[in-house]
Amino acid sequence: MNDPWVPVPMTIRSRRQETSDTVTFELDASAAPVRFRPGQFTMLWRYGLGEVAISVSGDPREPERLVHTIRAVGAVTRPITQLRPGDVLGVRGPFGRPWPVDEAEGSDVVLVAGGLGMAPLRPAWLHLLANRERYGRVLLLVGARTPADLLFPDQLGAWRARFDTEVQVTVDRADAGWRGPIGVVTRLLERAGLDPARTRVMTCGPEVMMKFVAREALRQGIPADRIAVSMERNMQCAIGVCGHCQWGADFVCRDGPVFGWDRVGARFAVAGV
């Protein structure tokens, strides 16, 4: 049977509490490996309660370990994040268009993450690191509300310790222990010293953040078609038929979630399209 609506059961192998409201699950996909591209998402079904679209946050080289980072914000994500190792989720996917990591080969690449936007960018970052020789400069610019809201802080430290990456972190509001930059993530982009002729930008976060990231990248002379954003919309089918995720002429689930700014930039100027 190959029904696109029917999920495959997968067992939770591990659960890590990332922040007060955000959890990373690793699912055992060994029976049905999920070969995904960075930026794609799956539909996760909690039996009897509902289904939700979640970006894959794991390593694309490990299709048997399906990793998602989920924030408890809604009627489905809350009960999902309460699950424990040994519990089972239904999985459909992967779906959607990936980050343009192949097109970016030979370029400098800047990933700009805001909040939970780090989750869909993490596979892209892991891909850049795994194929480091194919790229020029690789930069990861991360913004979070507070230091406690930072996702993957240990990994950020390890990535920052490498000599072939540039990793910067900023927070909106510091706490007593914070000695790093304070302010919006766009500031980090201003100071990154990018060569607009050879740079690609990939950004995920709140829409207003992505809008300012794109605006700053354009100001620096980076062409619109080298700026990619990842969109979030209500999704119920993931195959372009339920209609919920429509945004202009696009179905975000099928034509996105990753879009070039040249295609969608104008939509950011009209509310409610």
């Binding site: 609506w5 009897g48 119920q236 089918c237 339920c242």
Partner: peptide, 20 residues
Amino acid sequence: CFCTAVADVTDATGAAERVR
């Protein structure tokens, strides 16, 4: 018009349906 919503329906036996 083709838009649909999908929801879970469960019963007392624990059986579940995905209903569109």
